[in-house]
């Protein structure tokens, strides 16, 4: 069953009507088919209208939609011969981050990403995509592997943030994230990151210090969640909508701020409505980026990556 978001109520209403008509007619009456077409057009129009000007907070809702394609869907969708690789070789296997080797449009690559899960059982197993230090250390290990064997690294980012737990802190959550950033800036192999859903703070940037960074049209990427920001700066989570606007966390804002390199368009009504289309678009983007980056000298790649981040965020600096 489709889980509608609050602002989708008018769409849902129309779709309900279509369902009703179909039910009554049993698919035989031509006149009703015309009516259905008309309503369908209305739905498309409405989707275009609503999704064409989503507010930042509505984008957060879309980015967190439970039916939005997850890492598993992307891997199944466009990675051939995926071989998952487990463990950080230090303490544990953390399923909040999944990694492995596979082939994308013919290119062998290391694929790493947050997995949030899609039902209660898998959500618990993947800890809702909130990684512990082991997840980030596994990512570092796989980046090293890619570096040594000259494979490009693809990171798919979708997390509310790193897991804020007692065990995670005790085993060095901050250190694990810091080392991941350092690793991203060290490897001499192409590194491409895509924010597919929610890019939550340090837990996201740990996998997103890349040569090229893309975001889905309705993905968000932020230093803190809108709710967290509201409760600290406005002293009430009720201001989450205001905070979402102030934080400039949409793909469109981030492209303007030159924090990302491109936006991947989503199907009408968001990736969760037509996941297959979103999956195809992403694989096309990856193919283009891989073609561009593979073959570039590793030292040059790394130098450019570092320079990119050194220059990034100098916006507004008055020399």
């Amino acid at each position: 069953m489709y889980q509608a978001l609050d602002f989708e109520a008018p769409i849902l209403e129309l779709e309900g009507k279509i369902e009703e008509l179909r039910h009554i007619s049993g698919g035989s009456n031509v006149n009703i088919a015309d009516e259905v077409d008309k309503l369908q057009n209305k739905v498309s129009k409405l989707l275009k209208q609503i999704y064409g000007k989503l507010t930042p907070y509505q984008k957060i809702q879309v980015a967190r939609h439970p039916q939005r394609p997850r890492l598993k869907d992307f891997i199944q969708g466009f990675v051939q011969d995926f071989v998952p690789l487990a463990g950080d070789r230090l303490f544990a296997e953390d399923q909040a981050i999944i990694g492995g080797i596979g082939r994308i449009k013919g290119y062998a690559a290391v694929i790493i990403g947050h997995e949030r899960g899609s039902d209660t059982e898998s959500r618990l197993r993947h800890n809702f995509g909130m990684a512990r230090p082991e997840g980030y250390r596994k990512a570092q290990r796989l980046m090293d592997l890619a570096d040594r064997l000259k494979l490009p690294v693809i990171c798919l980012v979708d997390t509310a943030g790193a897991y804020p737990g007692l065990d995670a802190e005790t085993r060095g959550q901050a250190e694990a994230i810091a080392r991941s950033i350092e690793k991203c800036l060290t490897i001499k192999t192409p590194l491409i990151s895509i924010i597919t859903g929610e890019g939550g703070s340090g837990g996201a940037i740990a996998l997103a210090v890349a040569d090229q960074i893309f975001m889905f049209e309705h993905a968000v990427y932020s230093v803190i969640s809108a709710e967290g920001c509201a409760s600290i700066l406005w002293r009430s989570a009720d201001y989450k909508v205001t905070a979402a606007e102030a934080l400039k966390l949409t793909a469109q804002d981030l492209l303007k701020l030159k924090v990302i390199d491109g936006i991947i368009p989503e199907p009408l009504g968001g990736a969760h409505r037509v996941p297959q289309e979103a999956i195809h678009k992403l694989s096309d983007t990856l193919e283009r980026a891989l073609k561009e980056l593979i073959g570039v000298d590793g030292s040059v790649l790394r130098e450019k990556r570092r320079a990119k981040f050194i220059e990034m965020g100098r916006v507004g600096i008055v020399g």
Partner: peptide
Amino acid sequence: GARMQEGILSLMQMARTVAAIQ
């Protein structure tokens, strides 16, 4: 931690400072 008032650009300082000490 990060300065929320600078949003994503504050987050980017994480990568930037790591690159500097590297």
